[in-house]
């Protein structure tokens, strides 16, 4: 497996029934880039993320993740869906962190973190648990391995969820509004973990409303509205000096 960490999207379209949520998405994310996606709700930000992870399939356009066509293989006249095994393999290289954490409530923190490596990759349990301890420590939760998600606060659960994704050693990490479901005082602890991660050169795509995080950490910022990418540029540049009137209007309301 090559380490790549790039995402390329070309003219991506996606509809849910009669509603077209992604109209013409063009995106180029370099390896190690931290990209924040902002925009009003319903603009398609989450859908972009879910397409990159294969939770949704795109209707048309080119989507390359880690340098490979994602979920499909290309022939002269069509894209053909990959067999589930291949798709699963591609997915293991893209980590996803959800707004609602989605930890498995029937497993402890350790078991959650080990679920990917042991159940999917068939890794040795002893090795996996050692790794789980390391990962828990890296998200500031050393010693919490035996607790069940229901015993942890929202912020702690989200950090376990991040560790669970990291356990698969993905090249890319996707964050879908990772702090939106948290109590305000727990937001910081999750953002701190994400900042640490950003320093390590992981490609990160973050859908967020945390403009402070975007300003401080992101390399690039994407503003989406109504299924289009309206503006894209250097994060600090866009935040302080937006060019498009729609970006200006949105930032005026949230800042």
């Amino acid at each position: 497996m090559s380490t790549d960490g790039t995402i390329v999207a070309l003219k991506i379209r996606k509809s849910f029934g009669p509603k077209t949520v992604l109209k013409d998405i063009n995106l180029d994310i370099a390896s190690g880039e931290i990209c924040c996606i902002i925009g009003p709700s319903g603009s398609g930000k989450s859908t972009v993320l879910r397409c990159i992870n294969g939770l949704e399939t795109v209707d048309s356009g080119v989507l390359k993740v880690n340098g490979e066509d994602f979920g499909y293989y290309e022939t002269d006249d069509a894209y053909h869906a990959l067999p589930p095994k291949k798709l699963a393999e591609q997915r293991t290289r893209v980590g996803m962190v959800f707004q609602q954490f989605n930890l498995f409530p029937n497993m402890t923190a350790n078991e959650n973190i080990m679920s990917g490596p042991v159940l999917v990759k068939g890794q040795d349990k002893k090795q996996a648990i050692e790794r789980a301890h390391e990962l828990l420590a890296s998200v500031g939760l050393a010693g919490f391995g035996d607790y069940y998600p229901a015993q942890l606060s929202g912020g702690q659960q989200q950090r376990v969820a991040i560790a669970r994704s990291l356990a698969m050693d993905p090249e890319i990490m996707l964050f879908d509004e990772p702090t939106s479901a948290l109590d305000p005082e727990k937001v910081g602890e999750v953002l701190a973990v994400m900042k640490e991660l950003a320093k390590k050169g992981m490609t990160m795509v973050v859908v967020t409303h945390e403009m402070g995080f975007a300003r401080e950490v992101a390399d690039s910022l994407v503003f989406m509205d109504d299924g289009y990418i309206v503006e894209r540029g250097d994060a600090r540049e866009v935040l302080s000096n937006p060019k498009e009137p729609r970006t200006q209007a949105f930032l005026e309301q949230v800042l």
């Binding site: 294969g54 095994k85 699963a88 997915r91 989605n102 990917g116 159940l119």
Partner: peptide
Amino acid sequence: GQIEAADSLGMS
């Protein structure tokens, strides 16, 4: 969300 989490880990 549980099913999506399992999917995103690549579970069969």
